[in-house]
Simulated assay, not measured.
Amino acid sequence: MPTTRVCRTSSRSGRTARLAAVPALLTLFTLTACSGGDKASDLTAPRNHLLSEDRGATGGDDQLTGGVNAYLWRGALDTLSFMPIASADAVGGFLLTDWYTPPAAHGERFKITAYILDRRLRSDALRVSVFRQVYQDGVWTDTPPAANMASDITTKILARARELRADNGNRDN
């Protein structure tokens, strides 16, 4: 029995020694991380050339320097606001809704993706995709939407964007 007792004692002292070493190791790692400041700042300095470009959704400039048309972006948000938004990126001009079931349509749901492709307020600067699923035999099945659904939504987004631009005095910024 004394050997068991000795093992327990040595186990406790080993655990205590390890616990005492933790603060010392943390201090050592902290001091190591703080030294050599120039090398650390060189490693973390951004080197992406896109950071110097304006990628905001401002105005409807005719120059293609990046970003998207703010009127198209706001028009898409306003037009699709009745659906839950799953993802939105104003810089990239991407808007994705979550599945939406219209109140009058049971067993049918829709998802819409809108891409704003340009800084100019033009009809070809907008691409809309509509996805439709029907609930059949306990499973949601992909089904093509009505042929004119994407073009109707595109028309509504463009009309709203033009209305916003007119409210702004037909200015592009």
Rank of each mutant, 00 (worst) to 15 (best):
T65W: 12
R120D: 06
D54Q: 10
M83D: 03
R165D: 01
L28T: 13
F82R: 10
A105Q: 15
R5C: 07
A150R: 12
V134W: 01
S81I: 04
R109E: 01
N173W: 13
R119F: 04
G59M: 05
T3S: 14
A114E: 03
Y115M: 06
A125H: 09
R162M: 04
A146W: 06
T16R: 05
E108G: 01
D167L: 08
G75P: 11
A57R: 02
V22N: 01
T9R: 15
E108A: 15
A147E: 13
I153R: 00
R47S: 11
L25S: 09
T30M: 08
G93P: 06
D62C: 02
N48A: 11
D98R: 06
P102F: 01
S13R: 14
L72Q: 02
D38K: 09
Y71F: 15
Y100H: 15
G66V: 07
T154L: 11
P103N: 12
V68W: 03
A105C: 02
W73I: 00
L121I: 09
A150F: 07
L25E: 14
R55M: 12
V128S: 05
D42C: 03
F94R: 11
D118H: 09
D42A: 11
S41Q: 14
A90P: 06
R132N: 09
V130S: 07
A20F: 03
L51Q: 12
T4F: 13
F82K: 10
L164D: 00
V91N: 06
I116H: 04
A125S: 15
S35N: 06
D78F: 00
K156C: 00
D118N: 14
C34Q: 09
D62N: 13
R47C: 03
A159T: 13
G37S: 14
A20W: 03
M83W: 05
R122M: 06
L64Q: 15
F94D: 10
N168A: 15
D61Y: 03
A159N: 10
